[in-house]
Design a protein around this nucleic acid. Structure first.
Lengths: 213, 213
DNA sequence: CCCTCCCATGAATCATCGTTCACTCATTCT
DNA sequence: AGAATGAGTGAACGATGATTCATGGGAGGG
């Protein structure tokens, strides 16, 4: 009879897979995507390099899983925050502030996953993540425009521009690292809302109402 | 008597160095930074790989020169446009629109030089370029704020955020490629000015006044 | 015209990583 | 207990790409 996986073994395998994923993610968050190398991941996970390949067919698959998991988490958080808001403009503000706050919380990782050098295959996957983010934002912008809460504009340009502003203003290498996180998030959120055509005073009000972690 | 470089030889050497730089730049502009490899550059310049090393001590030095030259050109163009403007707000608008227009004109190259995967050593140089850009913008923003033309804000955050918005909205992989360049530039410039706190109507006026190439 | 210098060449070398595989060892089944 | 299975290992391999170097050839000096 064929060898059958014990309860115990199944759990151990799953744990190890998670350990490998965690190792990859923590390296990305500490030293950037470039440092996510099989040897390094294996070392951090306390296993041999070859073992990684018993869990992931290739390095790209491993990195893809890291990015995919993060994408899922972030998108869910953003959607939840937006859906809980009372109106289209509040939803937009919540969307932006949530993304900003969460990105800032894991600053290095956010940058690594969203904007750092990677192999072309991985880049495609990362693009999917960004595309999904942009699509989410675009939807909220279009809704607000349709409802007359924002001046008429091309959401196809505005959405990626806002994402760019948030990333560069908060987590990019040129963003100031000092200062309160809360304040930084409010600053860029305000900036983004104004960019979309919300007048200063109203934008400040929306930002103040946002529930920030 | 010792060998002495003839007029003619000196010129030929200078020309060849320029040819190599041009080859590197054109490859970066067509296929991205990753495609800038010694072999490829040499082939495009119609010389042997080893010859490149008679002109540049390393690949990084070559790439650094490409980036440095571009940085110098772009900064000069932006400064000129801003200095020619009548007031602080016009200068800001000119700054932004000029950067946007020039980046869009050489879209792929701009992305390659400002945001694409490179070796860590190069990344430092690229950061210098971005830092200079941000500093320029920051200066203009601060001036406008001091003059009461913009609401009080942290230019240290706003400046990189604006650069990010321009890059992502115009030349990033998610920016829509179709449509008139002029219109795209105006759209993101408007977005950026509003982000800084210029009210919609006034921002539209400023954008309309900008001299676009 | 001949002798030096350099410049140019491109095959060979070196370094870096992802990936493989022959082998060891723990676990499962009879 | 003994055989069978499959997880774990890590040195070796292969691909890619930067850098070097022994050698050939053309230009400057006498």
């Amino acid at each position: 009879m064929a060898y059958r996986r014990t309860e115990n073994v199944v759990r151990r395998l799953a744990e190890r897979e998670q350990t490998i994923l965690d190792a990859a993610r923590s390296i990305a968050g500490e030293e950037g995507m470039g440092a996510v190398q099989i040897a390094a991941v294996a070392q951090r996970a306390d296993i041999a390099a070859g073992t990684v390949y018993r869990y992931f067919p290739s390095k790209n698959d491993l990195v893809a899983d890291v990015i995919g998991a993060m994408a899922e988490r972030e998108l869910a958080a953003i959607r939840a925050a937006a859906d809980a808001a009372p109106g289209p403009l509040s939803a937009l503000a919540a969307c932006i502030a949530t993304f900003a706050a969460r990105a800032l919380q894991e600053r290095r990782l956010a940058w690594a996953v969203m904007a750092e050098p990677v192999d072309a295959d991985i880049d495609a996957l990362r693009l999917d993540f960004r595309r999904a983010l942009v699509a989410e934002l675009e939807k909220r912008i279009s809704t607000a425009v349709a409802g007359g809460h924002l001046p008429d504009q091309d959401a196809r340009v505005a959405a990626p521009a806002v994402i760019g502003a948030l990333l560069e203003g908060l987590v990019g290498p040129l963003a100031p690292s000092a200062g309160s996180a809360r304040e930084a998030v409010q600053t860029v959120t305000l900036l983004a809302l104004r960019a979309l055509g919300v007048v200063d005073a109203r934008a400040r009000g929306l930002v103040a109402q946002c529930v920030l972690p």
